[in-house]
Design a protein around this nucleic acid. Structure first.
Length: 297
DNA sequence: AAAACTGGCAACCGCACAAGG
DNA sequence: GCCTTGTGCGGTTGCCAGTTT
């Protein structure tokens, strides 16, 4: 097999000449018979390496070197929540993107969010959002049950939210996708969302597998109230706004029936999921503690 | 200015699966 | 039914450039 160490196998970055050889092979024979490229002596690359190079870099219509758009980000977040880490499947919904692109995008995002959570959960003397912290001192102490962003994850619990949106009163609604029909809708009321925005903000995946969270004892009642789809965790009672339909790109995302009870509006494109997350008060997660192991469900 | 940190990306590795002999 | 081969997928690693300290 190709896993074996063999002499004459070239690895590492591809040269332009190699790309040309590969492209001409694909032109002649189509994107198949990758192993024959080496057996014919055209390249000293394994079939796997050739295929990977073609799929990720040489294939036509790839969006190489192009950052993920807001819409693409939103789609990835939605689909990751629905499918889990099925990058190839997710990539089929994103023209010009490869599974590797999606995987790298998600990985970067995870690292970024993990770091944000880490820095915000440990007292820091120099946090960039320090001014906002004082503005948001009324954010209640909260620890959440165990989450996972993956549908396949076994640790999904009461708050296995897979998606979210923000309504025109600044309420973040955690929206279970159809496959998670038994989960409930949760709302937040951050102070930093422009009300008259234009597009849906995917809620940043703070609900990650590595985040084993639990409610503190003083917030057990909060946990119970999460079962109420109308419960506004941050206390606002002015959140029951009218229903506004939202265009959802992939067909399977359309229903979102469980979001019907709450308003959903478009919000400004200038707000990316990440900058939105960055706007969380630095101490918002101060009270989130790790659990050594998930409690039995 | 230099070191440390971070993000983005390309590529490799191991595993799984399907097809064909 | 088995083995081999080809292919696809997800996880991981390493490099490099940009940013921050």
């Amino acid at each position: 097999m190709e896993g074996k160490r063999e002499e004459g196998i070239r690895k590492g970055p591809w040269k332009a000449e190699e790309d040309e050889v590969l492209i001409s092979h694909v032109k002649k024979y189509g994107p198949r018979d990758w192993s024959s490229i080496r057996s014919k002596g055209l390249l000293q690359r394994t079939g796997k390496s050739c295929r990977l190079r073609w799929v990720n870099k040489l294939r036509p219509n790839l969006k190489n070197g192009c950052k993920f758009s807001l819409e693409e980000e939103r789609v990835v977040i939605e689909l990751q929540a629905q499918f889990g880490n099925k990058w190839a499947r997710i990539a089929t919904y994103l023209p010009g993107r490869t599974d590797n692109d999606v995987k790298n995008f998600w990985s970067s995002r995870q690292k970024r969010l993990a770091r944000i959570l880490q820095t915000s959960s440990t007292p820091s003397k120099s946090h960039k959002n320090e001014s906002e912290v004082t503005d948001c001192h009324d954010v209640p102490s909260l620890e959440a049950p165990i989450f996972t962003s993956s549908v396949e994850g076994e640790s999904s619990r009461a708050l296995s939210c897979s998606s979210s949106c923000i309504d025109n009163s600044g309420i973040v609604k955690m929206v279970p996708l159809p496959e998670l029909a038994d989960t409930k809708l949760i709302t937040f009321e951050p102070h930093f969302v422009q009300p008259d925005s234009q597009s849906l903000i995917p809620f940043p995946p703070i609900l990650q597998p590595q985040l084993d969270l639990t409610f503190s004892s003083e917030n057990q009642d909060l946990l119970v109230r999460f079962d109420d789809p109308y419960f506004d965790m941050f206390g606002s009672q002015e959140t029951k706004t009218e229903n506004i339909t939202l265009p959802m790109a992939p067909p399977f995302l359309e229903p979102l029936e469980s979001c019907r009870s709450g308003a959903r509006v478009k919000i400004d494109n200038s707000i990316t999921p990440d900058c939105f997350f960055d706007d969380f008060p630095a101490d918002m997660f101060d009270h989130i503690d790790s659990l050594p192991s998930p409690p039995a469900q």
